[in-house]
Design a binder for these strands. Structure first.
Lengths: 212, 212
DNA sequence: GATATTATCTTGACGGTGTCAAGATTTAAA
DNA sequence: TTTAAATCTTGACACCGTCAAGATAATATC
């Protein structure tokens, strides 16, 4: 436990963590540099030693979001190594779960809160790694005949688009109640994925594990 | 031309229009009540006579976005009455075009900038009407064998999800340059839609009209 | 080890923002 | 015509992002 020192020692990470925390708790509108600084126990301008402006902090929070996604995806790819179908469903489910669990962080991460991404190399790298995982899963699905042949990157964008679109509509409250009463979110997601698979997906084949 | 009066006469609409205008020009971060008021030529608290708070103005802007979408969709449904396939492609294209043309308005409209939608009946009504148009188009596609049979509302959500996901990723800059260099946005959209149609879609069958 | 340089953090200030309170002005109702 | 309500203004408040100037600590240089 670090005692109160003039130099924090790990302020940049502490600020990022505080940012994620505040974003979860108070939403996008409630995220301010001053609050983040206070949460980290420093003065209201201390963040400027580590972030050029608020955009830079948001970029760090976005990077953290992509890192969370990346780790989920790579874990899933390892866990269901022999079963591309399962990889696809569980990867999509992890994406939707992220959106449901932490909507504000999800939105900031994937919905372009960062104006010019290319100014933040760490963010660009992490988006690349995440998309790489998606691509690998899609590739495996193509090899097993679950998805149609064709340019992998294009198909990966389509698959990502389906999942992202569903997750976005879900947390935006755009999916009607009459629909949500009739089936679970997971079933709806599998139904959506089923539209693009060559082999039918049966929700019963993918029981939900309540492990996280 | 209305002369300068104490009472504006149509301030609520003027504020909404100014809001859309400022949103397009300065982005989400640049949208402020005070700027909207100034643009409309009134004092900085005048909006409070018509909107409870900033959220309420954003809800009105969002409603306007859904209205724009609704009118596009209903026009397309009428224009290509006998061709469901064309309806699907052009409706999706209109959606993507909206996102490209006015990204900030698109984001505010469809990405849940409004915290609790149910507090704004006009917004709820317009989202319902828009989704109704999507449903009708999907229904026509099912009848013609372009889309699989099944619950219409569920399929409509899936289709909307695909298009929304693609549009969102596009304006978030998440679609790689190597991909965008290889094909047009319209071709990518049709490629995505082709993943869910039972009959293949050929981009050549849908030349882009540069009418808007 | 002493000094200089740099990184880090603080205090203080500025204009801009959402929102409330109190009052002025116009329209609508009684 | 008087009253009530709707609409708009001025003024204030706390909060925000950001800059400037200075204090403090860590690091580099001699």
């Amino acid at each position: 436990m670090p005692t109160k020192k003039y130099h924090h020692g790990d302020l940049k990470n502490a600020l990022t963590r505080a940012g994620v925390e505040i974003l979860s708790r108070d939403g996008i509108a409630g995220l301010s540099l001053r609050k983040v600084a206070q949460e980290a126990g420093v003065s209201h301008t201390a963040p400027y030693a580590h972030f050029a402006d608020k955009q830079a902090l948001i970029a760090a929070i976005s990077t953290e979001g992509f890192r969370i996604l990346f780790e989920h995806l790579s874990k899933i790819r390892e866990q269901y190594q022999a079963d591309p179908q399962c990889q696809l469903v569980e990867a999509a489910w992890a994406y939707v779960r992220f959106a449901q669990t932490d909507p504000a962080h999800f939105q900031v991460t994937f919905s372009g809160a960062v104006e010019s991404e290319k100014d933040y190399p760490a963010l660009v790298e992490m988006t690349g790694k995440s998309f790489g995982e998606v691509t690998r899963i899609v590739e495996a699905c193509q090899a097993s005949g679950l998805l149609r042949p064709g340019p992998v990157d294009m198909l990966a964008v389509s698959v990502w688009g389906i999942v992202h679109g569903f997750a976005s509509l879900l947390i935006a409250g755009q999916i009607s109640h009459t629909l949500l009463d009739r089936m679970t979110v997971r079933e709806m997601l599998i139904f959506s994925l089923d539209q693009i698979t060559l082999t039918p997906l049966h929700p019963g084949d993918f029981p939900e594990f309540l492990d996280d």
